[in-house]
Write a protein that binds this DNA or RNA. Structure first.
Length: 463
RNA sequence: UCCGGCGUAGCGCAGUGGUAGCGCAGUUGGCUGUUAACCAAUUGGUCGCAGGUUCGAAUCCUGCCGCCGGAGCCA
């Protein structure tokens, strides 16, 4: 069986050719004119293919009339200009083979409305809906274009480990990985679990970030990036958080914060432009059914340069705004969602890069600025979503880094590999992290991040 | 974790103290080069769970469970 994807069939100019298509039935309409309309979708594009199933088919009475949404079919027939007005081509069937029926009483995805909440209970079937098919295609393009962007710039793709023995890093609570019997783990004399007897001979967890390992490769290979799953055991229950999500983390040697911000802006604009050119039909669906205006927003962002402001200037803007924030802004505060959104939506009316945050509210590895108060950190803020990228120039001076670690209560023994990078041939370097699902969310306008990843994991959610 | 909202038929929802309703899906019939087809009839519910108030509770109260939204944490 040599089938042609529906995306190709709908694109071709040829008519009157014999083709085979295969897919899943979306809807069937019977006509008394001697045939039924059967719309099938195969995931290759947003649109369905209209199949004309004449009553003369040998299995018309006993099979075609039993086709309901979800049934799988292989159709052989003639690709012809459509007599109807809703589509330019259709497939006039000479034979329709039914691979599998989908009884409408049991199959949950009929023609009736269904909520995203309900679909989350059906992750194995939801890709068959318009929304999730479109999300899957946009997500695929974003992933592919991420690799293309970095490869075109000479960045090396590095696979950082998923299981790690890094003793936290401050990024969040970690999922423990163990092969010990949870009911009877080996114990030391003091009663504590003896992880020396665990699989790795020490306590291990799922990674919360590939950054530290990524830095080690940047400090040998130059420009690198990672793109892989990360895990947070935080009990955060919002539409913007997942327990398992994919993160993109570039790291550049011989680079400072300005280089970092330039890379972030170029990367985001590349992705915006890519989905606009490659996902037209899907984006039009999102624009019509999910979030009106999402298309225009992407077009605007793909062309507009990002705003740039220091944290100190940003706080002055907030203080002088006259706006009644729930949390009054002051220098030294960690910016609240309302502050970030005000900057992006009302002051800059577009993406903005905020740099040079107070040392006290940022991570230990960020480079101390000469003012003694701030670090070379940056956040990229988008309208409506807030922070999408967090990054920094890294502290490359051994003595300064050691002081920062002890201030943060971190045990240097757990970071000897990281400190070695500063002991031997240290170089200035910088990088950032981007939550991939938030990017998918932003491009599709999908409200809940659980609906932009195939199998979402969140507190209490692991189908 | 905190605050707020919701939980009624397979699905989406209405119903604020007096015998449970609508749309879709299903079934039956009709009609049509149809477009999430349309028209008519019809099947289907321990109103999340457990207590309580009341002559009477989907409706009011308490607890629990689940989900959603916002916040925090962050990406």
């Amino acid at each position: 069986m040599k089938r042609t994807r529906i995306a190709c069939l709908l694109k071709t100019e040829k008519r009157g050719i014999n083709v085979v298509a295969a897919g899943w039935v979306r809807t069937r309409r019977d006509s008394k004119g001697g045939f039924s309309f059967v719309e099938i979708n195969d995931g290759s594009c947003f649109a369905n293919l209209q199949v004309i199933a004449p009553v003369t088919l040998t299995n018309y009475e006993d099979e075609i009339l039993r086709l309901h949404p979800g049934a799988s079919v292989v159709v052989e027939g003639l690709l012809q200009a459509s007599e109807g007005s809703g589509q330019s081509v259709e497939l006039k069937a000479r034979a329709i083979g039914v691979l599998g029926f989908a009884p409408p009483v049991e199959y949950p995805l009929g023609k009736q409305k269904i909520s995203f909440e309900r679909l989350r209970e059906l992750p194995h079937l939801r890709a068959r809906t318009n929304s999730f098919g479109a999300v899957a295609r946009v997500r695929n393009v974003l992933a592919h274009e991420t690799h293309r962007f970095f490869h075109d710039r000479g960045f090396l793709y590095v696979h950082t480990p998923i299981i790690t023995s890094n003793d936290c890093e401050g990024a969040g609570e970690m999922f423990q990985v163990t092969a010990l019997d949870p009911h009877a783990p080996p114990r030391r004399g003091d009663g504590a679990v003896d992880y020396a007897k665990d699989f790795f001979g020490r306590r291990a967890s799922l990674t919360v970030s590939g950054q530290l390992e990524g830095e080690t490769y940047a400090c040998a290979m130059g420009d690198i990036y990672t793109f892989g799953p990360t895990f947070r055991a935080e009990n955060s229950n919002t539409r913007r958080h997942l327990s398992e999500f994919w993160m993109i983390e570039p790291e550049m040697a011989f680079a400072d914060l300005d280089d970092d911000a330039e890379l972030a802006e170029a990367f985001l604009r590349h992705l915006f432009a890519a989905v606009l050119t490659q996902c037209g039909a899907d984006l039009r669906f999102f624009d019509q059914r999910i979030l009106p205006g999402v298309l225009a927003r992407l077009e605007r962002l793909a062309n507009a340069p990002f705003g740039r402001v220091t944290y100190t200037e940003a706080v002055k803007l907030l203080e002088g705004s006259g706006k009644a924030f729930e949390f009054a802004p002051f220098w030294g505060m960690d910016m609240q969602s309302e502050h970030e959104r005000y900057l992006a939506e009302e002051v800059f009316k577009g993406p903005v890069v905020v740099t040079d945050y107070p040392e006290a509210i940022k991570a230990f590895y960020m480079r101390r600025n000469d003012d003694g108060k701030t670090v070379a950190a940056m956040d990229v803020l988008l309208p409506e979503v807030g922070e999408i990228i967090g990054g920094s120039q890294r502290e490359e001076r051994l003595d300064v880094l050691e002081v920062a670690m002890s201030k943060g209560g971190l045990n240097p023994d757990n970071y000897s590999f990281y400190l070695d990078l500063r002991r031997y041939g240290s170089v200035p370097h910088a990088g950032f992290g981007l939550g991939f699902e938030r990017m998918v969310q932003f491009c599709t306008g999908m409200h809940n991040i659980r609906d932009v990843i195939p199998y979402p994991r969140a507190p209490g959610l692991c189908y």
